[in-house]
């Protein structure tokens, strides 16, 4: 079942198009990562999902409800954690949570009970009665997560939630999100420009640049789509055999020489030397053949890896491509 459906969603500010005919679906129960650089239109898209700003054209449906005509119902089901969330400084963390709960029509006692439970969950119960103004950045973000969860949401939208938290805090925060999503079956939309975090937690990723969705899918599909253009990249560490007494002894192979070794194989497109390794580009998965050929030639094979692309590579690769277009 689709939990979030965006159809041809467009948002224009004057002549500037922030979101350009966006089509996106997020399935129920998955963690979807919205990945893009600053100013890509991620936040604007999220605001439109919540009915906090009106789209120029197109439609948004969240949990089957139209966000433009019926934002209240959507907001009943969706928890939104804005980037750099703010709390009422003069109230305690607990009071802030209870206030949100009561805005969601949860009665006073139930709200207190729930807030206590959630504060324990985000490990803030020790600071529950401290003024929110005294909270650190990471604590505020965790309080924000509790604040989002207090209404029992079906979907939570996190806009750059890890900004400005230290690495340990980030790890804990991400673990908490995954845990919650799996336990309670909450659909999570996670917007970030941090590739590693998205890679760590998200089931599927949408790559979002200049208001358009460039690619969508899990990390493997994405890397397939964006990178290899139908080719495989294999990293190999090849060195002359230690027992070799020929002219090559003690020297390093050059790319040309490796190519010579592998020339008998089908589908080898190119060989490049990169640091200590050789990157072999081929039209099909030739890992086994390469290994056999190298061993047969008498050289040492000390490293062999079919390259999986991380989001980092996807990101940079895309921007290289992007600069080519312009």
């Amino acid at each position: 079942m689709d939990c979030i459906e965006l159809n041809d969603l467009t948002k224009k500010y004057g002549s500037y198009t922030a979101v350009d005919h966006l089509n996106l679906t997020v399935r129920k129960g998955e963690i979807f990562g919205l990945l893009g650089p600053n100013g890509a239109g991620k936040s604007t898209t999220i605001l439109m999902m919540l009915g906090l700003t009106e789209p120029t054209s197109g439609s948004v449906r969240v949990c089957g409800i139209n966000s433009i005509t019926n934002p209240i119902e959507v907001k009943r089901k969706v928890g939104y954690l804005p980037e750099d969330v703010g709390f009422y400084d003069e109230l305690t963390g607990m009071e802030n949570l209870v206030f949100t709960a009561r805005l969601n029509c949860i009665s006073g006692k139930a709200a207190t009970h729930k807030a206590e439970h959630l504060l324990r969950r985000v490990s803030l119960s020790g600071d529950a009665h401290k003024k929110a103004g005294k909270y650190s950045r990471g604590m505020r973000q965790r309080l924000g997560l509790a604040d989002v969860l207090i209404k029992n949401p079906e979907v939570i939208i996190l806009d750059e939630p890890t900004l400005g938290i230290d690495p340990k805090g980030v790890r804990e925060f991400l673990e908490l999100i995954v845990e919650l999503s799996k336990e309670e079956g909450i659909t999570v939309l996670f917007s970030s420009h941090h590739l590693h975090q998205v890679q760590k937690v998200c089931d599927r990723v949408g790559l979002f640049v200049n208001g358009r969705l460039l690619a969508e899918g899990d990390i493997q599909t994405l890397s397939k789509k964006l990178f290899t253009k139908g080719t495989y990249a294999i990293e190999a560490g090849i060195a002359p055999s230690a027992s070799d007494t020929s002219a090559f002894a003690g020297k390093k192979y050059s790319a040309e020489e490796v190519k010579k070794v592998l020339q008998s194989l089908d589908g080898i497109i190119d060989v490049m030397a990169k640091d200590d390794l050789f990157v072999i580009e081929c039209s099909h998965d030739a890992t086994t053949e390469i290994a056999k050929a190298v061993i047969a030639s008498g050289a040492d094979l000390y490293y062999l890896n079919r390259k999986e692309y991380g989001l980092d590579d996807i990101y940079y690769r895309y921007f290289e491509g992007d600069s080519d277009h312009e």
């Binding site: 919540l50 906090l52 209240i72 119902e73 907001k75 009943r76 969706v78 928890g79 939104y80 804005p82 750099d84 969330v85 703010g86 709390f87 009422y88 400084d89 949100t100 805005l103 969601n104 029509c105 924000g144 604040d147 209404k151």
Partner: peptide, 14 residues
């Protein structure tokens, strides 16, 4: 400026 506006308005209220 406190950042509470978007948080409050993302609650189910008009």
């Amino acid at each position: 400026n406190k950042g509470t506006l978007s948080r409050i308005l993302s609650q189910p209220i008009h």
